[in-house]
Every structure is written in structure tokens, then in C-alpha cells.
Design a protein around this nucleic acid. Structure first.
Lengths: 215, 215
DNA sequence: TAGATTGTTAATCGATTAACAATC
DNA sequence: TAGATTGTTAATCGATTAACAATC
């Protein structure tokens, strides 16, 4: 099976979105130099990433955009549909449940859950909000592998346990909790506040210190 | 000025949230071992991070939780208030504008902007939504350094330019665009879809391959 | 004391970059 | 051809880990 470094893996979404933008304006090729400048990384690193992805460029032209994009999508499995449930029907859950861009990545939201009786039965992004009591049953019935967790932190662990026991294998965690899951279940922590922390550090240190870039 | 490695920097938010949780249940000390287990990193690495932060532990007990938390907050500048404007009053912008947890980190939302005449004048999180036409004026008048960008991608660059020209120094970017800013302005790309990509890869490769962990 | 734990140095590992050959 | 660009190897840099001394 093909494999790339962790660091390269983290660059894939960024490459992908640049390719999208270039493709949208009709460009066919992009050079390692252009990619490196947009991402502010070294040119050689881009070429090494491409080599690791087994993508070959053309001398004098660069890399074929649509082939490269397709390769990244294939590598990440974005061409197969991934069905997911959103658990937590607050603003963030609503944002994620209604985000139209997800379909381009194969992500399909097939249900929204909440524990607020006021919300149950209302519509979010075309889905009737269901009670979290029914979460396990729906996971099993639809054979769901991924949940998107946007619940308040105090119920995060509880919901996780229910979902994992029902067979979920991946959790996209937007709560600030470090979840505890059995091995074989993958958690992606979004930890949104972390982004702010980096900016706060920057703002408190701009005056005086030269341009760092703690990306 | 004190400084830590980029990699250590990225661990700070995770340490911080664990400390919060432990403090909330009344714990006073935490060992490098406990931290390492929760974060699934090496014990020595935790101790090295603490040393870099100039935090000293106690033999047999570990690190004092409240001192450590305070040190991280101080290091990141979370104890001073950072005022920010949310630009984009969609679901995501609303979620960020109304998130109650931000105040604990010194982040204070002081305005919400949108370009939809239907939305302008309505309330989001206690703020009357203002027209983006007034963004530059408000940035200048209130001397705002940070904007939170949740606009649709096709206006992202335009809004960024306006904000940067008006004097903003940091952009918390929730759009999928790679923004182009002058040096001295810091962008934090949230690129939410990247999180899904990592999970998609995992789900498409679980069967067969052993437990990797591309955190 | 023995055990638990921190703190630090040196060794290792992994990622990035410099140098340069290959080629269209 | 000269110039632009990829592709690859070796050198460098940065981050993690192993080993172990220090100490409560």
C-alpha cells in the first residue's frame, strides 16, 4: 500500500484546494515553484511530495492539475461516499450539516441528532433532527462509520461511548475534550480554540519580535 | 523573549484543555506520565515541553496544575483581552460569534458583519449585524487587530484586503482559500475539510492495514 | 529506605533543504 | 541552443526518544 510521511499528509488538503482554485480558472499545469510560493514552503519539498504520491511532472510545464487532484482524491478515498451523522444540532452542528461543499469530498451527512426536545423534529439541512437516544440504532441500521461531534463538552464522552459501541470507527471531534476510544477507532480533534491561541501569541508578540511563522 | 519549538507550540492547547478538565474536578498535580498517556505522546517529551516553558515539577507529585495552566495562558497572551470581529454571518459565523467558551481565553467578539441586506440589522450573539461596507471603518475606529473570516470563498480575498488595509494584523481563516497577505500579517488557516480528509483516508484503509495514527 | 518521579544529555529518527544531474 | 523545470541523492536541521542521574 502506498504511504507518505505524516508531514506530507498534512499538506495534501492544502495542495488540493489550490488545485481546485487553479482548475476553476482553467489552468492545466502548475509548477512546484508556484505551489511552493502559495504554501510558503520549499520548492524541493513540493517535488518530494509529488514523488511520494507517485505523480510525475513534465519538464518545463509542471504537474498536470487534474491528474494531481484526482491522485490526491484517490489517495484519500474522497471518491467513495462516506456517510456521517452530525451529533449536536447547535450552530456549529448546523453549519456542518448544511455546508454544501462537503459533497465534493464524498462526505454525505445522513442525519442530525440532538437531545433538546425543542429541537427534535425540526429540520436542519433537510434532516429531521432525531433524539440522541436513537443514535446507536441509526448507526447500526445504516452501518455508519463516522460521526461528527458538536455536542457540549459535558456529554462528549458519553456520546462517544454510545457511538463507538454501536460500531463507529471514526470521530470528527469539534468538542474541546480529549476523547478516550479503543484502538481501531480514529479521532480527529478539531480543537478550534487552538487556532486562536496561535493568533493570540502572535498578536501579543508582534511588536518587537521579527516575523516568525508558527503555522 | 521566551520561545519553544513549533511542535511544542502546537501541543499547548491540548495541554491546556487537559489541565482545565483536571482542575475542574479538583486535582492539584498531574504527572508527565498522565499527560503523556492522555495525549498519546512520549513521557520525556512532556517533560521537555515543561522545561521549555520554564515550568518545574515536583518529584513524586508532578506539575502543579494551576501554575502550569497560568503559565501557558501567560505564554500565549490569553490573559489580555483580544477583540475580534466576525465577518460572515452564516451558520459558522454565528457559531463562532455566540460560542460562550471564548471569553475564558480572552477572545471577545465585538461585532458581526455580513453583506446580505436581509441579515443586516438582525442580532447575532447580541450584536446587530453590520454591512461589510462598514468593516474598514469599524476596524479603524476600534483599533481591531483580529478578524474571524467565515465568508463564502469567492469574497474571502476581497474582504481580507479591506481588513488588512484597515490595519488588521491577524486573520483566523475558516474559508478554504489560501489568503495572500503582506508580511507582518498572520493568517491561521482552519481548513476544516482537512480534518475530514484524514478521517476519510483512515476509513478507506482500516481494513487490512494495522493501526496507524496520522494525528 | 525504596519507589516514584523530574530533569538533562546524548542518540536516534524523521523531515526539510541544498546541490546537482536529467530532460524537454 | 538556452532556459525552465523535474527528480533524486546527500547533507542538514529539528524533534523525539532512550538512558540515566538527581531528588523527594
Amino acid at each position: 500500500m502506498d504511504s507518505i510521511s505524516k508531514a506530507a499528509f498534512r499538506r495534501l488538503p492544502r495542495y488540493h484546494q489550490i488545485l481546485n482554485a487553479y482548475e476553476a480558472v482553467g489552468r492545466e499545469y502548475i509548477s512546484s515553484r508556484e505551489l511552493s510560493e502559495i504554501l510558503e514552503i520549499n520548492e524541493t519539498l513540493v517535488r518530494k511530495d509529488m514523488a511520494d504520491l507517485k505523480i510525475r511532472g513534465r519538464q518545463n510545464q509542471g504537474y498536470g492539475i487534474s491528474a494531481l487532484r484526482a491522485r490526491i482524491e484517490d489517495f484519500l478515498g474522497l471518491q467513495e461516499i462516506t456517510e456521517a451523522l452530525v451529533v449536536g444540532g447547535g450552530h456549529l452542528g448546523t453549519a456542518l450539516a448544511t455546508y454544501p461543499g462537503f459533497e465534493h469530498y464524498g462526505l454525505k451527512i445522513v442525519g442530525v441528532f440532538d437531545d433538546d426536545p425543542q429541537k427534535i423534529g425540526t429540520k436542519i439541512g433537510g434532516h429531521s433532527v432525531l433524539s440522541v437516544n436513537r443514535l446507536a440504532a441509526v448507526i447500526q441500521k445504516k452501518n455508519i462509520k463516522l460521526i461528527i461531534l458538536t455536542v457540549p463538552r459535558h456529554v462528549a464522552k458519553e456520546v462517544t461511548e454510545v457511538a463507538v459501541n454501536a460500531g463507529v470507527l471514526a470521530i470528527w471531534n469539534f468538542t474541546p475534550c480529549e476523547l478516550n476510544v479503543p484502538s481501531g477507532v480514529k479521532v480527529r480533534n478539531e480543537q478550534i480554540i487552538g487556532g486562536f491561541m496561535a493568533l493570540s501569541y502572535y498578536l501579543k508578540n508582534v511588536t518587537g519580535s521579527p516575523d516568525d511563522n508558527g503555522e
